[in-house]
Amino acid sequence: MSSPSDCARAATAEEARYRVDYPNSKPRTSKIVAMDDRAAAITRDLETASWNGARFLSLIGRTKGVQGLDSIPLDLDLRDRSGAVARLSKELPGADVVVMIASAGESPADAGIVGRSCAARGIMTTGIIVEAGASAEEVELTLETLRPNARMLVVASDADYVAEMLTALRA
């Protein structure tokens, strides 16, 4: 046994040195949407760090969809870090992931618009609920709102998880 290619040899520390060294992924397009004021404060602190193109947005409110029926809001106005107003529908094309940040106790009704818009375009959604000392009822309230609208949900005790997760995801 022990040809250059069998597991005995391949799994050694020595062989780990020969892993082909190159960037094995292209930059991703990540949109981080703060769903309430406290969440916006968290992302504001992060905006200044260096990211791989992550775009930080905060919710302003509903707006009429471009091709929507007049009375049904289908789109959202968002504010980017420069203060400019952006439309959700303009932000989504090409996005790999949309991360919704919400504070426990809030029930951001507009999560439904984010969730449905992403689902319609096949975009991955992740929700982070920042607990920060909130009660179980408050967490449940926010969970209830985000759950139908995010394919992955995290309840984090501390706001620092947001940065940690975005780094892990190469956002």
Partner: peptide, 9 residues
């Protein structure tokens, strides 16, 4: 080198 995705939370 890893490329984690949302389900790796």
């Amino acid at each position: 080198k890893e490329n984690l995705v949302s389900t790796d939370n």
